[in-house]
Design a protein around this nucleic acid. Sequence first.
RNA 1: GCGCCCAUGGCUCAAUGGAUAGAGCAUCUGACUACGGAUCAGAAGGUUGGGGGUUCAAGUCCCUCUGGGCGCGCCA
Length: 548
Amino acid sequence: MSSIPALLSSRFQAVTGIDPELRPATKAAFGHYQCNVALRLANEQGRKPRDVAAEIIEAVDVSDIAEPLEIAGPGFINIRVKMDVLATAVTDQLADPHNGIEQEESPDKVIVDYSAPNVAKPMHVGNLRSTIIGDCLVRVLRAGGNEVIPQNHIGDWGTQFGMLVEQILFEGIDATTLTLDTSVELYKRAQVHFREDEAFAEAARLRVVALQSGDPQTRTIWQALIDVSKAGFNRAYARLGVLLTDEDLAGESMYNPMLASVAEDLEQRGIAVVDQGALCVFVPGDETPLIVRKSDGGFGYAATDLAAIRYRLNDLKATRLIYVVGSPQAHHFAQVFAVAKMAGWLPDTVKAEHVGFGSVLGSDGKMFKTRDGKAVTLDTLLDAAEEVAAPDVAMAAVKYADLSNALHKDYVFDLNRMVATTGDTGPYLQYAHARVSQILRRAEADGDIVVDTTATISILAELAEQTLALLLTRFPDTVAEVVASLQPHKLCLYLFELATQLSTFYEQCPVLKSEGEVRASRLVLCRATQKTLAVGLGLLGITAPERM
RNA sequence: GCGCCCAUGGCUCAAUGGAUAGAGCAUCUGACUACGGAUCAGAAGGUUGGGGGUUCAAGUCCCUCUGGGCGCGCCA
C-alpha cells in the first residue's frame, strides 16, 4: 500500500516532472499538505508563481483523494485530504501487518556496526549511545524490509591483552575465576605495572607476540577474559532491551588473520607506501596518512577496519554499511572509506555511512564524568535512572532522551527531565499508550469488539479526530525518512506529536460515553493510535506498556 | 597552523531553501465526583551569536568575525 502523501506526490510529479516538494502543511489553516514547486518552476520559467500553480491545479488529478486544491500566498498549493480517504487509510493501516510502512522493493543488505565495547573495560556512556542508536537503526531498517546484519566490533585484540595476560600470570590468577569487576581492577593494576616496571613492560610486549602467534596458554587466558566480558555485555544488553546477541559478535580479533593481506594488497598495487617506516596511504586532499601498518610491523585499527570492509562486502555481501561510532572518529572513517574506494573494495553502489554522534555532557555542560574525573559507567547511570523510575520506564527515559536529540549534537544528561511524565519524554509516550489501552480494555469489558477486522472508521466529524487520523497516516513516511536519513529523532518528534494529539482527542471526544457508529469509529481510531504508538516505540527500542 | 562540528525565548530542544521560526520545562490564568489530572485549554516569552553576500524566498546555502567542543602518522 502507498501512503497518502506518497500518492499525492506521485500524482503531482506526473504533472510537474520534478520533485513536487510535497510537505505537511506548516499550519492547520493551510490544509493537510502543501506543494511548493510552483515557486521554483515559475522562477525557472520567468513566469508568475500563481499562474504556474493554477496550471498545475488544472492538470493534476487528485479529485479522488483531495478536496479542490487552493492556491495561497505567493504560489503555494494547499491540499486537503478527503475525510473518507483519511478514514479508509487509517483503517487499512491498522489492518496492515507493517502498519503501513512501505517495504523496500529492492532491499538492502545492511551492516550496522555498533556498540563495540572493550574487553576488560566497563561499558561507559559512549557505548550507551552507540548501542541505543544502533539498536534503533537496526529495528527501523528491518521495518522497512531490509536485511540487517548487526556487527558488534568489540575491542578484543591489541597490545593491552599482552599486558593483561602477563599480569594474570604474574599474579598467578586462575583466569576462569575472573568476573567483569575483577578483570577491570586487573586492567588498572596491569596499567600501573606496565608503566612502572620496564621488565614487565617488555614481557607484556612479548606476550602480544605470543598471543598473535597462537601460543596455547596465552590464548586460553585471553579467551577467558573475553568470556567474562561477553557475559557482562550480555547483561547490559538484556537490561537495555537491545537486540544484540553473541551471534552478532565480530570483534577485532576476527580480522587479525586478514590484516597482512590487506597491507600486502595495498602495497603491491602502489596505493600504500612506506613512509617513516610505516605503511601509509595518502588520501588526496588529506595531509595526514592512514597508517595501515605501524613501523614496528604491528597493525592498528585502520587495518582492521579495512579488513572488515572487505569481509563485509565479499563474504557478507553487504550493500550498505553503517558505522555508529562517536563523532570524533569522523576523520578516521572518512579516510578508511576513501582508502577502501581507492582499493576498489568499496564500489560506488555501496553506501558507507558513518553515523557519528555527540558526547553526553554532565549538568555542568562538560564531558559527563564522575566527581573524581572518571568515565561514568553504564551500570552507574542505569542504576541512577532506576532509582527514580521502574525499570521499563527508566529505560524508556534514558533511550528517548538519547534518541530525541539530533545525533551530531552533544546533549546534557539530566535524569530529572528525562524521567518526567510530562513533556517530550519516553515516559510521557508510554503513558499515552497505557491510557489509550485502558479505553480499549474497558470497551472490551463492555462487550465491544474492537479488534474485529471488519471494524472501520466511518466518521471523522470532529477536528480532533481528523487531526489524529491525519497524523496516523504520516507514520509510514516518517519511518521511511529515518531509513533514508538515519536520524531517529525524527521518529521521536513524530511520536510526541501523535501522543499529544491523542491527548487532545481524548479530552475533546469522549469514546466510551459515545454511542453507535461514533463509538465504533472512535474505538478503531483508538486502536490504530495504540498500534502506531506501540510500533513506533518498538522501533526506538522502547516498550509500550498497557498499564503503568 | 590545518580540518570537522556547534551557537535558536530564562532552561532543554525542533524546523526537507518556503507562508506569521515551532514544542517541552519553568512562570502566569483557567478546567477536577476524572473514558487514569501521570491531563487538558490558554497567556506571556525571539532582531535565530555579530557582520556581509547568494536567492522570488535564508535559522537553513556562501564568506567573514566572535565564542565553545572535537580531531590532526604509528592507542583503539
